[in-house]
Simulated scan of single mutants.
Amino acid sequence: MRYCLALDLKDDPALIAEYERYHEKLWPEVEDSIRSAGIREMEIYRIGNRLFMIMETEETFSFEQKAAADAANPKVQEWETLMWRYQQALPLAKPGEKWLLMDRIFKL
């Protein structure tokens, strides 16, 4: 399965650069949590302060199971708290939402 998600960064060049540096060397515990959830590939793209994530997952992948596993993993929670220093919710996000799932509107 392929999922596409969006999120914004705070519009501050220094914070954006710092956020990108963290992603040059992802914490091993965070990478392990991504892979163990059934995510085979993940890419994040940026334009300005808008982020776009593409995830290729196993058929068994579940956002709910991933969220539960992340909530029980102290290192992932530490990462998420740190990343929130750089991130901001999209204007249409509900309270507590970060990455929002995008709808595909075209395929060639």
Rank of each mutant, 00 (worst) to 15 (best):
L15W: 05
L92R: 15
A71I: 01
W27Y: 03
W84N: 15
A37Q: 04
V30T: 03
M42S: 08
K107Y: 14
E97I: 03
R46W: 04
L101N: 12
T57V: 03
P91L: 05
D32W: 10
E20W: 10
Q87T: 05
R50C: 11
K25T: 15
F61A: 05
K98I: 12
C4W: 15
G38L: 01
E78H: 10
A17M: 01
K107F: 14
S33D: 12
P13I: 01
L92K: 15
E78D: 14
S62W: 08
K25W: 14
W27S: 03
I44R: 02
E64N: 01
K94G: 08
K107A: 15
P13Y: 00
W79P: 10
R104F: 10
M53R: 15
V30D: 05
R85T: 09
F52N: 12
A67F: 01
D8I: 07
L92H: 15
E20F: 06
A37L: 04
G48A: 02
F52H: 14
R50D: 08
L9G: 10
L51P: 11
G38E: 04
T81M: 11
F61G: 00
E41P: 12
E31I: 06
S62K: 04
N73M: 02
E29Y: 07
L108T: 13
E58Y: 00
A93P: 11
R2P: 15
L101I: 07
R50K: 13
R46L: 01
P13N: 02
I44E: 01
L90G: 03
E31K: 11
F52V: 12
L108D: 14
A6F: 00
R85F: 09
E20S: 04
A68S: 00
Y19R: 03
K75N: 15
E80L: 09
D12M: 04
Q87W: 00
E80T: 11
L26Y: 13
Q65T: 10
G96Y: 04
M55W: 13
A14N: 11
I39R: 00
D103M: 13
L5T: 04
F61I: 08
R21P: 13
E59T: 03
D70Y: 09
E41G: 02
W84M: 15
R85V: 04
Q65W: 11
Q77R: 08
N49P: 13
C4P: 13
P74M: 03
L9E: 10
Y3K: 11
E24V: 08
A72W: 01
P74L: 02
M53K: 15
L90H: 03
A71K: 11
P74W: 02
E59N: 05
L108R: 14
E18V: 08
F52A: 13
A37F: 06
K66N: 14
E97V: 04
T57Q: 02
R40D: 00
F63Q: 03
Q87D: 07
E58R: 01
D103E: 14
F52P: 10
